[in-house]
Write a protein that binds this DNA or RNA. Structure first.
Lengths: 214, 214
DNA sequence: CTTGACTTTCGAACTAGTTAGTACATTTTA
DNA sequence: TAAAATGTACTAACTAGTTCGAAAGTCAAG
């Protein structure tokens, strides 16, 4: 019958695995770990369930691979932002906007993290790859804060991890809680105007917090 | 009707339902909608699975009842805070601290909301009870902002829903992302010292944001 | 180019355990 | 008596993971 034409099969293990991971990412992000169906993932793949178990061993193994891949992707994108030649305030704003844009562009990642939290980060704990991560962000923030403080732009001595949390919280929440928040307040958080306002808002808030002292 | 203190006979529908809801809340919060097991809930109850279906019809029905109950509980606790005789700044700080304490004290609620977001708030949409909620908070915030602005304490004209989101984001994130954040940064967000610092931090951030204008 | 060991892929039926939901009988209450 | 509440045992469907048996691609050495 149909479409796939000849059975011109090529062995491309990398592509097969990537294909599975891509489909699985969406499935897990949409349905959660328990809610996702291996059969459903297999069907949407260009390969079969057999292959999923061939490469990933189990549903949990697949989930963990999905999680690791998502984090690895960030680490790559979280490029060295060349903040050192910017003023402390400009550097901070750039950093914040980058976080904002990242979360906005990667709702699947945000949801995977939410799911992982529901499971008490149990899988993340087992993955060494993920644990030693994000440390670089903290060092970057620490540097910017120090610079700002010694220049007298920032009057408040703040903990870099706290600042990172404040930024993450805002950016993450907008995406993770988009649906309940949108339902209750009848406001579409993914709308361009709202998004732009929020993007500036979190930056203004953090900056004014660091500049103030009371 | 009446007294709960009676020599309760075996039939006590209210208590049975409440018992089921209590157990189910924890189970759903811990395992998610798909991950929760009706049999597991039944076992932890002083009644049986039969009763779950008798009162709630289905697993989803039970989940929805749990969700509604959680929201109703907040509305009750979210008492009129008597903010009108406080200065705008003090009123805002009180409001923020109340939100902070609420989320901190109700991790199950926070997780249910997270779960509901994973499901695109589909159940919440079907529940009229939940939708027309939280409007009062916005009105409260709007009042405080207006007062502060006209008194010249707040120099920035901000949208009350945006401000509510900023507060919610911070308070919610600390609880919802406690595990992944804690794992990555090796920091226990439920520790007393950290908690106290964050409690003041979000208040300072919002206040300084409203006082600034650049 | 050929050979042969090894890896990758296909597929589809099968199973063993689980799980949401039910039938039916029984007890309690009004 | 009727209606509401409860207990026990069941089932029909689902689902993660397997089994068996291939066939086709890859790669290095001869």
């Amino acid at each position: 019958m149909a479409g796939s034409g000849e059975n011109g099969r090529k062995n491309d293990p990398k592509r097969t695995q990537e294909d599975i991971l891509l489909v699985a990412t969406e499935e897990f992000a949409t349905h959660g770990l328990a809610g996702a169906r291996v059969d459903a993932i297999a069907e949407k793949t260009r390969t079969s369930k057999r292959m999923i178990y061939y490469y990933f061993g189990s549903k949990e193994g697949l989930y963990l691979a999905v999680l690791e891949r998502s984090y690895r992707k960030i680490r790559t994108l979280e490029a060295d932002l060349l903040l050192s030649n910017l003023s402390p305030e400009a550097a901070l704003r750039t950093l914040i906007e980058t976080t904002f844009d990242h979360d906005e562009a990667n709702p699947d990642f945000v949801r995977l993290v939410s799911i992982e939290n529901i499971h008490h980060a149990a899988h993340m704990l087992r993955s060494e790859a993920i644990r030693d991560l994000n440390v670089s962000v903290i060092e970057t923030i620490a540097g910017v804060l120090d610079r700002g403080f010694s220049q007298g732009v920032f009057r408040r001595r703040a903990d870099p991890i706290d600042i990172h949390m404040m930024i993450s919280a805002f950016c993450f929440f907008r995406v993770s809680n988009r649906y309940t928040f949108g339902t209750i307040f009848r406001r579409d958080l993914s709308e361009a105007a709202t998004m732009g306002r929020h993007r500036g808002m979190i930056a203004d808030a953090v900056v004014s917090y660091l500049k103030s002292d009371d």
